[in-house]
Design a protein around this nucleic acid. Sequence first.
DNA 1: CTGAAAGCGCTTACAG
DNA 2: CTGAAAGCGCTTACAG
Lengths: 340, 340
Amino acid sequence: MTNKISIKDIAKIANVSIATVSNVINGTGRVSAETAAKVKKVIQELQFVPSASARSLKDKNSHLIAIVVPFIEKGILQDNPFYWELVRGVESGARNHEVQVILLGISEAEDFSFVKGRHLDGLIVVGVYQHSEAFRKIKSIGIPCVFLDSYLSDSSLYQVELDDEAGGYLATKHLIGLGHRDIAVLTGKMEQSGVISCRYQGYLRALREAGISESPDYILQADSSVHGGYQAAQKLGSLADRISAIFALSDVSAMGLIRGLHDLGLRVPEDISVVGFDDIFYTKYMIPSLTTIQQDIVNKGQEAVKMLLDQINGTQSPLKKAVLPVSLVVRQSTSAPKKI
Amino acid sequence: MTNKISIKDIAKIANVSIATVSNVINGTGRVSAETAAKVKKVIQELQFVPSASARSLKDKNSHLIAIVVPFIEKGILQDNPFYWELVRGVESGARNHEVQVILLGISEAEDFSFVKGRHLDGLIVVGVYQHSEAFRKIKSIGIPCVFLDSYLSDSSLYQVELDDEAGGYLATKHLIGLGHRDIAVLTGKMEQSGVISCRYQGYLRALREAGISESPDYILQADSSVHGGYQAAQKLGSLADRISAIFALSDVSAMGLIRGLHDLGLRVPEDISVVGFDDIFYTKYMIPSLTTIQQDIVNKGQEAVKMLLDQINGTQSPLKKAVLPVSLVVRQSTSAPKKI
DNA sequence: CTGAAAGCGCTTACAG
DNA sequence: CTGAAAGCGCTTACAG
């Protein structure tokens, strides 16, 4: 019913060989303008679209890439809207190059066999860890990859990341500049993620620079999620009296944190200042609006596609690593600490 | 480098024909346990994965579906996290059936040629309108489709939607029950979307039931986005004094609206109550937390995949339309109106 | 139970 | 400039 027509039908109707039809479609070989026009007309009339599977069977490339995103838990992708912005960027980048994007959530058990089976042209991999099983498997597939936010030490890998350290530094310096000295940091699982630990390093650098010594008990650890942020507030306990600011290493956790503080009767920023990280879509409209480190997530996705396609097409530039900039956006969730 | 090995190599090593290898892989035909074991062993050792393109070339099905989402504007998908939740649902539903999901953003200019080219097994289409060009084109492709939130009148189409009317009714009734009588409604573009207009119908029904007559000037129209909601508040003008509650037909617009009201010096819920719709991930943590109409978005995506796969595999049940339930979640953004 | 062969729809040398 | 033919990696009748 759908795609019954093939290159053969076109050839028959246009009175040429299938080779010629193929040449016309691909602009390859030498075809007279006249023949080309004739063939194109027939293609147009029959609304013929070449079979991607037949092509891919010959070419060995599929014009298909996948964006690989880690699962938060059994079979369900993270609910952080950050991923959606990234995916939007990838989609828009790919569509300009006639490449389609498969969305793939993975667990550690993923075997990636379908990547081979489908002859995927390449992979955009979000947030894998150096020592993870997933990373090992992905590398062993041997197809073009771009790693996002992954901080892999192997410099032969293509990577797109953010200047997370600078972001951590800027956020902390902002708080210090306002007069804060007792600044807690709300992190995700540190060991697992280069992103988190780089932001944390930036935090430490700002502290050092200001001559403030770090306190291990100022580290709050929780899931990078709204709920995680909320729980962190609940577990604050007596720490609440000793700190005047919290740097949350992601906006989603800052969002939950602020609500948690609110439920504790603590006002932001009057009692405690909060800085986030990412500048996701809603931060500007929160009450109070969130001071945060801004990154262009959509652009990050687009950049990753570009790098991947350059790699696939062999038009790659020598640089294998793109580090995207961050900036501080000051809003209402931060202010000078109360005088005590 | 990657997938050089084929069924032929397996056949050679296992000392059988390629037909036998194929039969072993697919569990078709009759193969002795012994041969099967031998072949399986070789497949295992060589980590052989059959070529999806070769299969699809024969079968005419690709085990590939697409989720089709409208663009908000030139080449960029909507930033509403609602879509992310939907996509997550679709991904998880598909992965259980060894089907991969392509993400496709479309504009009215989309020609869907790649759907034919790739032999997609089916499409999950989100939010198209009865009279749109996109809908016409999609129908003409002639492949299995499930339409989400589309309110298409053609009853031969498979559709998954929400009981939007009931949601609108519940939300409004809740406000009326609190004592509100002057209830504005914040809508998206009415004519374009069945979803919006059904929610609005529910609003009207609740008003009628309570003997409250509708006022045309209580309709606030804005983009279904955070920014749209914010703008709506800015344009409120003198209306602010005449109403005591606003029913926003989406959470994102409610989120912007509340911020907008805040900037106007209006408190929620003390001065104006606000109800949202969708119950997206953050509503519970907002300050004030948002009273809203809850739907299970992830489940909606899963439901759509299930219906699509049933249709593709011919195991479809007679019902072509699934209407998912809604419920009211009362939180802090609504209260009784002030006595005047 | 097993294999030889045709064919899915393309592309790509290779002749002419 | 154009066409005949091989081959990509599978599946599927059809023999045996």
